[in-house]
């Protein structure tokens, strides 16, 4: 999709497992083996206890809308054709919050607290974004 105009993530060694999992349509986050904290975004050490021993775990992808906004004006020129669209913070059942888009329903149907589930958007042959839809 050479015409994809939105910003794309540039994975780092620390985050590559997350994006590779997304490409397989799986949601993976990190967990600290020392203090058991769930961690997102991916890091090289635990932001709670600073231990370096993090493991990747597959999570259910279930969560709820913590907050959202309906963009009535594109927040970047690449989104111009999608206005209005929903930018949201989703809180996973495991705790961490992610920035995402809510798809699969009308923007005006989105509510804070609404149960959602991860859905995977293969935006380019190399990259899959983690979005959410009503559960």
């Amino acid at each position: 999709m050479p015409d994809y105009k939105k910003p794309l993530p540039h994975p780092t060694p620390a985050s590559r497992p997350f994006w590779e999992a997304a490409k397989r349509h799986e949601l993976q986050i990190q967990r600290c083996t020392k203090c058991s904290a769930h961690i997102f975004y991916p890091r090289e050490l635990c932001p709670e206890c600073l231990a370096p021993d993090l493991q990747w775990i597959k999570v259910s992808g279930k969560g709820s809308v913590y907050s959202f906004t309906i963009a009535q004006q594109a927040t970047h020129h690449g989104f111009a054709e999608e206005v209005p669209y929903v930018i949201a913070i989703v809180e996973l059942d495991e705790g961490p919050r992610l920035t995402t888009n809510i798809t699969g329903c009308k923007p005006e149907a989105v509510r804070i607290g609404m149960p959602v589930v991860a859905s995977f958007d293969d935006v380019t042959p190399e990259m899959t974004l983690v979005k959410f839809r009503p559960a």
């Binding site: 994975p11 985050s15 963009a71 927040t75 930018i87 920035t99 995402t100």
Partner: peptide, 17 residues
Amino acid sequence: EFDAPYGLIAANPGYAL
């Protein structure tokens, strides 16, 4: 890496949230 791909860019949408 984790906000901009979804359109959370600059300050406007952040304060809307």
